[in-house]
């Protein structure tokens, strides 16, 4: 057994407030539902039975679910943006932007730890680490892109004012077909993001043992006492 040095006291830190956790899980649900229904809208499966058209409405229902979930997704996202201004320090908007030299260094450090699997040197913030923060920042732009292109496509079939607000996107892309293509292609961003995100959470929890995974349920993370900022 090593020296005392290897024994650390850990302190609980309340990192994710309830609204943040709520946002996270609602967002998970929305992305799942939107992804699956979106995939089906793009590539509907063939059915083996041949009823009359009036006897079923499944494709219409799937589209309806996609549109409703789109609204939930958008407002949930807008709420998160709002919370970036009123939430605790870990939820703040500036957590996502590597604005200082120290933050950039931390980002590089996390890339080394995550990709090259080196040991952690220096202090990595307990909220979003800087790399995660930057990736979420990119993700927010993709959220916005999906919401705007989605509602732009929706504007062709609805009078919703949100749709109308996004309608300008269509001429910019050069037509519904192109908007649809990109809206569909971005589905793969979510697939890749989810794979990497879930894996890295598991990875950090596995090698660090500080409750990274469970923090999104209870809100608590654990930090070594000797590393806690004052």
């Amino acid at each position: 057994m090593r020296q005392d040095l290897s024994f650390h006291n850990y302190k609980r830190v309340y990192v994710w407030e309830l609204p943040v956790r709520f946002y996270h899980w609602l967002n998970v649900l929305c992305v799942l539902v939107l992804g699956i229904t979106g995939w089906l809208i793009g590539r509907p499966p063939g059915l083996t039975s041949l009823p009359e058209a009036y006897q079923q409405q499944w494709f219409g229902t799937i589209r309806f679910v996609h549109f409703v979930t789109g609204y939930v997704f958008l407002f949930n996202f807008l709420f998160r943006l709002y919370w970036g201004f009123v939430g605790n320090r870990y939820a703040r908007w500036n957590q996502f932007i590597p604005s200082t030299r120290r933050r950039v260094n931390e980002m590089v450090e996390v890339i080394k730890v995550d990709v090259l699997q080196t040991r952690i040197r220096g202090i990595i913030r307990i909220g979003h680490n800087m790399l995660a923060g930057v990736i979420y920042f990119v993700t927010f732009w993709v959220f916005l892109f999906q919401a705007v292109t989605g509602f732009a496509l929706y504007s062709g079939m609805s009078d919703s004012w949100i749709g109308r607000m996004c309608a300008w996107v269509v001429p910019v892309f050069g037509g519904d077909a192109v908007v649809r293509q990109w809206h569909h292609a971005m589905l793969w961003f979510y697939v890749v993001f989810t794979l990497v995100h879930v894996y890295l959470v598991a990875y950090h929890d596995y090698v660090e043992g500080r409750g990274t995974a469970s923090s999104m349920v209870g809100g608590w993370k654990f930090e070594r006492e000797d590393l806690l900022g004052h």
């Binding site: 509907p44 041949l50 058209a53 219409g60």
Partner: peptide, 11 residues
Amino acid sequence: RPYYDAGMFVE
């Protein structure tokens, strides 16, 4: 269009 909403597609 009713066939579209019913999910009945020519394959």
